[in-house]
Simulated scan of single mutants.
Amino acid sequence: MTAPTLEVRNLCTHFFTRAGVVRAVDDVSFTVRRGQVLGLVGESGSGKTVTGFSIMGLVDAPGRIVSGSILFQGKDLASLSEEEMRHLRGNRIAMIFQDPMMTLNPVLRIDTQMIETVQAHEKVSDDEARARARDALGMVGIPSPDERLKSYPHQFSGGMRQRVAIAIALLHRPDLIVADEPTTALDVTIQGQILAEVQKLCANTGTAMIWITHDLSVVAGLADDIAVMYAGKVVEYGDVGEVLDTPLHPYTHGLIGSVPSRNKRGEPLRQIPGMTPSLLNLPEGCAFRARCPRAQTDCVQRPELREWLPARFARCHHPHREEAAAA
């Protein structure tokens, strides 16, 4: 087996506020290999986006990485200087943000921004950079790309701006892309088109991808592996088909059970009771125990992420092991 493109080990990113320490990412580990897509899922506030920002070196004060390692092709990103990260960021590692205006400058034409992006990392002519920009726009389904290159961001709809942001991330065919819910604002037909292009890119070029989302249906059709986050921790990790078919962790079980299509017609929608705990004041032991139907007295002890079945990991004292093993 070749070395993984990205290996995150025991990553902890905390925010030091006046109210206390927010453990936004707390002991997160996963691996993404060449050509593989990892789905990073969980509800709002679970730590998904901060994990992505930590990988990209984009965590601002009062937040910082306090421990752990982020190995990109064997090099620890957490130990690199800002100048070293700048050479990698946008070139070998790219991020697609949820808000396209975090990528686009509102006062510059699209061609100016895309040509500058190409020439920031490669010595190519304006004509060659423009051709690559045009091809990237076509890849994400923007019609008349030559004409649209001359437009400003405000002349695009929200969905079209997002497609431009995705095209910019694809310009250098990076080794790793971190995508933070990039298709949330797009209609389902365009979403399907972009997901197909992303799969093709990963398969043909060997690009590894982390797809951050709360949409299990997107992950089911796109990802190879899935990591489920809750309260800053990965609570389940494994093959996407196995995890979604026979989840081990009660939280994953509840997430999948609350999808409307899994409820019988006329019955009340299932939901996970209670609320996500505050990251400023997490309970002792398992953070999910107050909402968990399988919680027992030993859940006041902190569970570790352990391998309950071959290549199936869960951070739980009482997982749905029997159901998964019988499947």
Rank of each mutant, 00 (worst) to 15 (best):
A3K: 05
P4A: 08
P4D: 09
L6G: 00
R9N: 05
R9D: 02
F16Y: 04
V21E: 15
V22D: 08
D26E: 11
V28Y: 00
V32H: 03
R33I: 07
L38Q: 04
I55P: 02
I55V: 06
L58T: 02
P62C: 08
P62F: 01
R64H: 06
R64T: 10
I65K: 07
S67T: 10
G68C: 00
S69P: 06
I70A: 02
S79Q: 14
H87V: 11
H87A: 13
M95K: 00
F97C: 06
M102C: 14
V107C: 03
L108S: 08
I110C: 07
I115R: 00
V118L: 01
A120L: 01
H121R: 02
E122W: 08
K123Q: 10
V124L: 10
E128R: 05
R130D: 00
V140F: 12
S144C: 15
S144V: 15
P145W: 14
R148H: 12
L149G: 03
K150F: 12
K150C: 15
P153W: 11
P153Q: 10
S157K: 13
G159C: 11
M160N: 09
M160K: 11
V164D: 02
V164C: 05
I166R: 04
L170N: 04
H172A: 00
H172G: 02
H172E: 01
D175F: 06
L176F: 03
I177W: 00
T183W: 03
V188Q: 07
T189V: 15
Q191S: 15
K200A: 13
I210A: 03
I212C: 05
D225Q: 07
A231L: 14
K233N: 12
E236V: 01
V240I: 03
G241W: 01
E242A: 12
T246D: 03
L248A: 05
G254K: 01
G254Q: 01
G257Q: 00
G257P: 04
P260M: 04
R265Y: 13
G266N: 09
G266H: 01
E267Y: 12
C286M: 05
F288R: 07
A290T: 15
P293G: 08
Q296T: 15
T297P: 02
R306P: 11
W308Q: 07
F313A: 02
R321N: 11
R321I: 13
R321F: 13
E322L: 03
E322Q: 06
A325P: 04
A325F: 09
A326T: 09
